[in-house]
Design a protein around this nucleic acid. Structure first.
Lengths: 149, 149
DNA sequence: AGCCATTGACTACAATCGTCATCGATGCGA
DNA sequence: TCGCATCGATGACGATTGTAGTCAATGGCT
């Protein structure tokens, strides 16, 4: 019974979180899920098995765990599937850059009230910035200063 | 019965999360809990009632909710209490700067593999940087460049 | 001295998360 | 063609989180 249905997009989950029309799906991606996303963001469409092998060293997950996480990501609408014989190929539907941006913003908002400088200061304190970083930031700032003029 | 016991520090909770000896207590602070912390970080020792009033506008929490969150924070060891008559005065035991640092680091690690520059780039993209920020960053960078020499 | 408002302790409960086992369907190789 | 390895679906279970009710103790006010 219940033959493999087309994976039901974030259709009718538990308590369908109603989002405002234009609003960008802020579907929360959990840490475990992000691990999966990182793999998918690296190598485009992958079968579940590929994801497993990719993580074999890093994580100690059973196949089931990986598959569950993939399913949840599909449910959440951040991963899409394409049939490939009897299996699925999974690919991110959410661009990594997008994700980074939204994460970065909410983070800076939550912790620093939106101001970026204190954040960078923390990184500097911790000597977390490589010479390269500094150079890069320098260039970036130069550019910004020009744009503002 | 069960007369008010001295609040039991992160003593023997559910399944005492064993931490390595030197390791910094990475007791996870949840968003709701952070809301409380923000209040405590602003005005030093406060009674539960004070925290409630402080949040009355911002959050729509019942007294019980606030008290539960305070208890959990005490359990987690990030808030300490001092008796004041029949009630407690709560104060952060974890400095805000510490918290910011640890959050920042794990964030940058998780999302950008430790590199800070991409993060700042995101903020710049979003025009999240005020002129002041830019000036501040500029100064900061100048300083850093000198230190490195 | 006695009452009552306030306080912390305990309990609860649904939703989410991290993990995983089981199972029925299915396509490939022998 | 047949069996088996593999795939996705489903269910599950403990822990955590957000939110809140109840209750017994207690201390200040009358």
């Amino acid at each position: 019974m219940a033959k493999e249905k087309p994976p039901k997009e974030a259709s009718k989950r538990r308590k369908e979180k109603q989002r405002a029309p234009g609003e960008q799906s802020p579907e929360r991606i959990t840490p475990a899920e992000q691990t999966i996303m990182d793999v998918l963001w690296q190598r485009a469409p992958l079968a579940a098995a590929d994801v497993m092998t990719a993580l074999r060293t890093e994580k100690d997950w059973t196949p089931t765990t990986v598959k569950t996480l993939l399913s949840r990501l599909v449910e959440k609408g951040v991963v899409e599937t394409a049939r490939d014989g009897r299996r699925f190929l999974y690919s991110p539907r959410l661009a990594r850059a997008h994700y980074e941006r939204s994460m970065t913003h909410s983070f800076v908002d939550r912790l620093f009230g939106g101001r970026a400088a204190p954040l960078v200061a923390h990184l500097a304190d911790a000597e977390r910035l490589t010479d390269e970083d500094i150079a890069e930031l320098d260039a970036l700032l130069e550019e910004l200063k020009n744009d503002r003029r």
